[in-house]
């Protein structure tokens, strides 16, 4: 395994157990490490991988596979994906085993209630960090905020907004 592959794996193994709210919640830290600390990707490449993962079918954790792919090819993609999903899955498995014991436990209720605001803070932070990474001009910010508003206020399908984004992009505004 090359050095960067090992570093990539160890980074996602840690993030896996911190990803309350799913992979999207960890994007600020993924960006911090792969762009700011290790310089594996530029802002533009990070943006492209994020866009590709959102446009592709499948769960949005796939962004991790794309970042791994960008750093170390196909093997990097598979390794990053396994590192991101492995530890949390093993934990889920054992929590499933212990489920009956914890079903009505007040500790579990406190954990659920305590983690809810953490998740909200992480996801909103993720949205803001992504906005600052992906948007380069006023039109970009306007597109992000308009998408946010439409999705909060209406039941429009997210893919419709991504398609609209693509068209606005091709038209050369962002």
């Amino acid at each position: 395994m090359s050095g960067s592959l090992l570093e990539l794996a160890s980074q996602f193994v840690v993030l896996s157990l911190l990803s309350f709210g799913g992979a999207a919640a960890t994007l600020p830290d993924i960006h911090r490490q792969v762009v700011d600390v290790h310089h594996w990707l530029t802002d533009a490449e990070f943006t492209q991988m994020f866009a590709l993962s959102q446009a592709a079918p499948g769960p949005n954790v796939l962004v991790v596979a794309l970042i791994g792919w960008k750093v170390a090819g196909i093997v990097g993609g598979v390794v990053a994906m396994l590192a991101m999903c492995g530890p949390s899955s093993v934990l889920a498995y054992w929590v499933g085993v212990a489920r009956d014991r914890f079903r009505a436990s007040p500790v579990r209720a406190a954990i659920e209630r305590g983690l809810a605001p953490i998740t909200v803070g992480m996801i909103v932070a993720s949205g803001v960090v992504l906005m600052r990474t992906t948007d380069h001009n006023v039109a970009g910010y306007a597109l992000t905020l308009a998408t946010t508003l439409v999705l909060v206020l209406t039941r429009v399908h997210p893919l419709v907004m991504l398609a609209a984004g693509a068209i606005i992009g091709i038209a050369g505004f962002v």
Binding site: A24, L27, T47, Q48, F50, A51, L52, Q54, A55, V120, I123, V124, A125, S126, G127, V128, L130, M131, T133, T134, D135, H136, G140, Y141, L143, T144, L145, A146, T147, T148, L149, V150, L151, V152, P158, M161, L162, A164, G165, A166, I167, I168, G169, I170, F173, V174
Partner: peptide, 17 residues
């Protein structure tokens, strides 16, 4: 196109939050 998709996708995450 992908710049546009990325800008909209950031909005997806913000809206989710």
């Amino acid at each position: 196109a992908f710049n546009g998709v990325a800008a909209a996708a950031s909005g997806l995450v913000l809206a989710m939050g």
